[in-house]
């Protein structure tokens, strides 16, 4: 979906006009941007902090910071990725506050073999998500992604769920493109491996 927009160089992204108006003092234009991105910012903050109150605070702080710094925003990156970068930094700050003494970094490369070689090779049932209630499924998905190292779950969320490109993900997180790629592969494989416990096709007689 993102790749299509890149080819239309002359077509201006709708955020450009909104940012320009907001800069000129149009508060309504900024409210439109808040409305457009608050849920995404909340999700990203929640994936990093894993704490509801912190994530809500991040939404507020990230937008206020963006508003304050609107003059510094360079039109050469998208407003959304710029906003995400602010939110990631705010989230990391909150996380560090809660975990004083512990290393908190997206940059830290976790040496792990988990998932690098797929072990659970049973096929999944067709539409496995339908075997669970909505709330139960959400709980499984939450628990599963929460178990991943910080750098893995954030890369997966930005790249695969929020739809940022590999380059945008790298830029937003301050990682190199190869680092994003290696984290993405391992995140995908680890999630797959862990979800397999719930979604694998049952053999006859298995409960």
């Amino acid at each position: 979906m993102e790749t299509i927009q890149v080819t239309e160089e002359n077509e201006q992204h709708p955020d450009v006009a909104l940012v320009a108006s907001a800069r000129a003092g149009d508060v309504q234009a900024f409210e439109t941007l808040v409305n457009k991105y608050d849920r995404q910012i909340f999700r990203i903050a929640q994936h990093i902090t894993q704490n509801r109150e912190d994530a809500q605070d991040v939404v507020q702080d990230a937008f206020l910071k963006a508003y304050e710094k609107l003059d510094q925003f360079q039109g050469n990156s998208k407003f959304y990725t710029w906003l995400v970068r602010i939110a990631v930094n705010e989230s990391l700050m909150r996380l560090r506050k809660r975990r004083t003494g512990k290393m908190v970094s997206i940059d830290e490369d976790i040496e792990t073999d988990e998932g690098s070689v797929p072990r659970d090779l049973a096929d999944w049932s067709p539409n496995p998500e339908q075997n669970f209630g909505q709330a139960e499924l959400a709980e499984i998905l939450r628990k599963t992604i929460q178990g991943l190292p910080l750098g893995f779950r954030v890369v997966f969320q930005l790249r695969d769920v929020e739809g940022l490109s590999t380059e945008e993900t790298a830029e937003t997180l301050g990682l190199s493109v190869p680092a994003v790629k290696s984290r993405l592969l391992r995140a995908r494989l680890q999630l797959r491996e862990r979800l397999s416990r719930y979604f694998r096709k049952k053999k006859a007689g298995e409960k």
Partner: peptide, 22 residues
Amino acid sequence: EVTLNTTRKTIEIYRSHEVYEL
């Protein structure tokens, strides 16, 4: 084949289900 299909499915499930709702 199983790895490919289930990895694709993993991504699809995370895309189509809200894990954290506001």
